[in-house]
């Protein structure tokens, strides 16, 4: 699965994994949108990019689209753990005026996701 969804309190965490391009984005999009639709009570959707190894402008489209969907339901989104490059691409869209975006702080060799 290219996205692992976890819900804690009022927050949906979507951990994206692998490469985001026009080929891989649709599956990620539907996994995240399913989580949004199934969790009526959430306040914030966090898109976590720590597992993303490559992204082009399709990654920006993915974030903007999730922002629009969440926003239409009165919810917020946040983008975490962007690489230096992905942060630069993300900023070209001006998304930071709509939602907080954060660079990765520490380098992790391997990410482990606990399974529920």
């Amino acid at each position: 699965m290219p996205v692992i969804i976890k819900t804690r309190a009022n927050v949906i965490y979507a951990y994206l994994k692998g490469e985001i391009d026009h080929h891989t984005a649709p599956e990620m999009r539907s996994a995240i949108d399913d989580a949004i639709i199934m969790n009526e009570a959430f306040r914030v959707l966090v898109l976590d990019f720590s597992g993303v190894t490559f992204m082009d402008s399709s990654g920006v489209g993915l974030v903007m689209g999730r922002y629009r969907l969440a926003n239409s339901k009165g919810k917020n989104i946040r983008v975490d753990n962007l690489s230096e490059r992905d942060y630069r691409i993300m900023k070209m869209s001006g998304i930071e005026k709509l939602a907080p975006i954060n660079k990765i702080t520490e380098k992790k060799d391997e990410l482990t996701y606990e399974k529920d």
């Binding site: 402008s57 903007m64 691409i89 070209m92």
Partner: peptide, 21 residues
């Protein structure tokens, strides 16, 4: 032009800006 797209949907219109940058 940055953000111009003829398609909409999940396209952001940033492809040429990214190529330039």
């Amino acid at each position: 032009e940055p953000l111009y797209t003829s398609l909409g949907g999940d396209r952001s219109g940033l492809g040429f800006s990214v190529m330039e940058s």
